[in-house]
Simulated scan of single mutants.
Amino acid sequence: MKDSSGLSLSVHQRLEHKRTTRDGWLQSILGQRAGQALWYVIMLALAVVWLIPLVWVIRNAFLPREASIGSAWSWGFTLDNFIRVWEGAPFGQYTWNTFLVTAAIFLVQIFTLTLAAYAFARVPFFGRRVVFMLFLVQIMVPPDVLIFSNYQIINELGLLDTKLGIMLPYFASAFGVFLLRQAFKQLPHELDEAARVEGASALRILLRIYMPLAKPVYLSFAIVSISFHWNDFLWPLIVTDSPENRLLTVGLAMFAKSTESGTQWADVSAATLIVIMPMLIGFLLFQRQFISSFMHSGIKG
């Protein structure tokens, strides 16, 4: 009887243990899903908050001028705002200037940061670590602090109110050099040795091995560089005076400050949409590549 009772008690304990384990597992799963649902709600709320100004600008850009001023909801639609804005200010010239400046800065940056990053990652020379640390000090210095000194240099070079004057301070990027140098350091040295055995020069190794393998890092830097210089305002405002050299952001500010359009929200919204539309289209077309580049461009020491 004792053996039978003990066996029955042991089976009962095992069943209770299984039931307790199952209940704990269910509670854990429910807790995880509740946490995920809460996180999704928070992200959705932040996305809605971020989208409100954009939706407001898009709505006002296509509303008739009278409807945009009133408080009542309107289903009106017109393209006259864009025609009026395009004819009222040289936005075509502003757009071309912005494309030219942004593309030229990025291409020169790719050249300079590639050579500098390769030198810091693979070329041994005396004081390399010290020079690299001094080079990284630029990341900790806000760009606005250097505006006065940069303006003096551009003025002495006679480059005020020129596109080259806008571009020159940005031809080198400490952040880009740091990002690319970390990517180059992760590549195994065996690739260099194998290429040198085949008779490849340092430049050929850089072009055929390092740059293709660091493509995600280049794409990540392209997003940062292009978006920054497309939206840059303070430096182009200080350097340029003529419409022939103004960028879109400066042209938009001048247009919004004008007495004729200052209270016309439809015109200002249409001009704003003209400025931001290329970046929005670029992101929508290449969003998968953007996300993939940031996922595959992790930085290691």
Rank of each mutant, 00 (worst) to 15 (best):
Leu100Tyr: 13
Ile147Lys: 04
Phe120Asn: 05
Gln109Ile: 07
Pro169Arg: 01
Arg84Asn: 00
Thr112Trp: 08
Asn81Phe: 07
Phe82Cys: 00
Val85Glu: 02
Met140Ala: 14
Pro143Glu: 06
Gln93Glu: 10
Pro143Thr: 00
Val131Gly: 07
Phe111Met: 15
Val137Met: 14
Thr78Arg: 01
Arg84His: 00
Ala116Leu: 00
Val101Asp: 12
Pro142His: 05
Trp96Ile: 14
Gly165Asn: 04
Leu134Gln: 13
Phe120Trp: 06
Thr114Asp: 07
Tyr151Lys: 01
Ile153Glu: 01
Val101Thr: 12
Glu156Thr: 06
Val101Lys: 09
Asp80Cys: 00
Val130Arg: 11
Phe135Val: 05
Thr114Tyr: 06
Thr112Gln: 13
Phe126Asp: 08
Gly165His: 02
Glu87Trp: 12
Ala121Phe: 03
Asn155Asp: 11
Ala103Asn: 15
Val130Lys: 11
Phe82Gln: 02
Ser74Val: 03
Met133Gly: 11
Val130Thr: 15
Arg128Tyr: 00
Phe132Trp: 08
Glu156Asn: 11
Met133Pro: 04
Phe126Trp: 10
Val130Glu: 13
Thr162Ala: 03
Thr162Ser: 13
Leu146Asn: 01
Val137Pro: 07
Thr98Asp: 15
Gln138Thr: 09
Tyr118Ser: 01
Ala89Tyr: 09
Phe82Arg: 05
Val131Asn: 10
Val101His: 08
Phe77Thr: 06
Ile139Phe: 12
Ile139Thr: 11
Asp161Asn: 06
Lys163Gln: 10
Phe125Pro: 08
Thr95Trp: 10
Val101Asn: 10
Ala172Trp: 06
Val101Tyr: 06
Ala121Asp: 05
Asn155Thr: 09
Trp86Glu: 10
Pro143Ala: 03
Phe111Leu: 15
Thr98Val: 15
Phe126Asn: 06
Thr162Phe: 04
Thr95Asp: 09
Ile154Gly: 09
Thr95His: 07
Ile147His: 05
Glu87His: 12
Trp96Lys: 13
Thr98Ser: 15
Pro124Gly: 03
Ala121Gly: 03
Thr112Gly: 11
Leu134Ala: 14
Ala117Ile: 03
Phe120Thr: 12
Trp96Met: 14
Leu115Pro: 02
Ile83Lys: 15
Asp80Gly: 02
Phe82Asn: 04
Asn97Ala: 12
Met133Asp: 08
Arg122Lys: 07
Ile154Lys: 11
Pro142Asp: 06
Met133His: 13
Pro142Arg: 02
Ile147Gln: 04
Ser173Lys: 04
Leu107Val: 11
Gly88Lys: 03
Phe91Lys: 07
Ile166Phe: 05
Val145Lys: 08
Ser149Met: 14
Trp86Ser: 14
Glu156Tyr: 09
